[in-house]
Design a protein around this nucleic acid. Structure first.
Lengths: 235, 235
DNA sequence: TCTGTTAGGATACGACTGTATCCAAACAGG
DNA sequence: CCTGTTTGGATACAGTCGTATCCTAACAGA
């Protein structure tokens, strides 16, 4: 077989170009020709690697989800090993973090904290809105948020069993509220109503209210002897 | 002068048709011809009453803001006079409601509670997303949320002076958090992740945490002798 | 070297977009 | 009744859209 072109790599470049357009000029500015121009290729190339526009858009949504996932894992890892991470193989996993640290890591990932995550949040918002009137996108776009919510709910319920939060709290309501809070704050950060620092302050404030005002910061490890305080962000 | 056509009325009909399309098929489905068809008139009529598409879209955004305003006021009035409203002229104004009742009314208005407000929230979300990449819409679309936030913040600060909430709370943070929560819940309700009842339960839950778990419900009037409990919504 | 497959350049089609123009009904004021 | 303005029907124009087609370089395997 002739030539040698890495199809996956090609598709990644085109998808990245698509997300660059969607995050700066909106999803309505995305056309096959615009994506081609942004990627520096011809229209035919976009057509060759994506059968139609729908496939291209779905690829963009999948890439966005993957990026969110990657960032959340990086945050969690940084919360476990805050300084210069030499992490041996028996390294602490997410299961050894306090529920508060997990929540702080995930919620801090939802709210845009640097230019790239701001752009991705822009694109994500555009997709989310489009999904409200497009059932095809809705199915693909809701799996990640739903998985996130059920993961956090289980994690917080376990933390409640361990006595980390008061027994009269409802983990499902708390998690749903925190995720809605983070999403709402994301909107206001994107529109310039609030800064990222304001948003994280509000989130930390709510985490304080949930986990008790005692500590006040997001301890990274579960206290085995005495935990070290790993500050993630805030003010 | 010939004919007699109420231009404002005509524009209202066209704007209503625009919002019907935007709320069911999205803002990208709005075209001059589609609006004409939805309103049952010819393309020329839409052109005649709106100089261009931009003016049409801005009219839609203004109408959405007006509807939100109207609903919030109706809610507030219903909270003051919960049963059969005979309201004499010295009627209780919003200034005589408890801060909690004001917050419950406003936040309950943000979250879609019936089919019409669900449709309007859909359209609002579409506009909000479009405003993220369109500075013209952004200016017009942010005035209402900003005014709402500053109004509620002042109201809550006054309530703090009156001892309705604990003195260590920051009214700015509380209001920003509650509004973000309501917006995030709206998103999840629109996408079908959560029901309206779930959303109001979460909001009431947070109001309980803010105003103290003592009462537990949104009392409508400021306690002059003994307030009557006006339940707005919930579960 | 020859061959057959792959990767893409060039071009075109029909549908739809916002906007503009032309012109004819409809009707109020003189 | 006449006239001039308002209202809107009909049509057109230049772009842009997603998609399809045709054809030719480029190159791996024989």
């Amino acid at each position: 077989m002739p030539k040698q072109v890495d199809h996956d790599e090609r598709r990644r470049e085109l998808t990245a170009a698509l997300l660059r357009i969607a995050s700066t000029r909106g999803l309505q500015a995305v056309s096959m020709r615009e994506v081609a121009a942004e990627a520096g290729v011809s229209l035919r190339v976009v057509q060759y690697y994506f059968a139609n526009k729908q496939a291209l858009l779905e690829s963009g949504l999948a890439e966005l989800g993957a990026r969110m996932n990657r960032r959340a894992k990086q945050r969690a890892a940084a919360a476990i090993e805050p300084v210069g991470g030499e992490r041996v193989e028996g390294e602490p996993s997410v299961g050894e973090m306090t529920a508060r640290a997990v929540l702080a890591a995930v919620l801090g990932t939802v709210v845009p904290f640097d230019e790239q995550s701001r752009l991705d949040s822009m694109a994500w918002t555009a997709y989310y809105t489009a999904a409200l009137t497009d059932p095809v996108l809705a199915a693909a776009g809701l799996t990640l948020p739903n998985a996130l919510e059920s993961f956090l709910t289980k994690r917080l319920a376990a933390a409640q069993q361990a006595g980390e939060i008061a027994p009269d709290r409802d983990p499902r309501i708390e998690v749903a509220g925190l995720l809605a809070l983070a999403n709402g704050l994301t909107s206001s950060v994107l529109s310039g109503q609030r800064s990222y620092e304001d948003a994280t302050e509000i989130i930390e404030y709510h985490l304080d209210r949930l986990f008790g005002p005692a500590d006040g910061l997001s301890r990274a490890r579960v206290p085995s002897g005495e935990g070290s305080a790993g500050r993630i962000s805030g003010h």
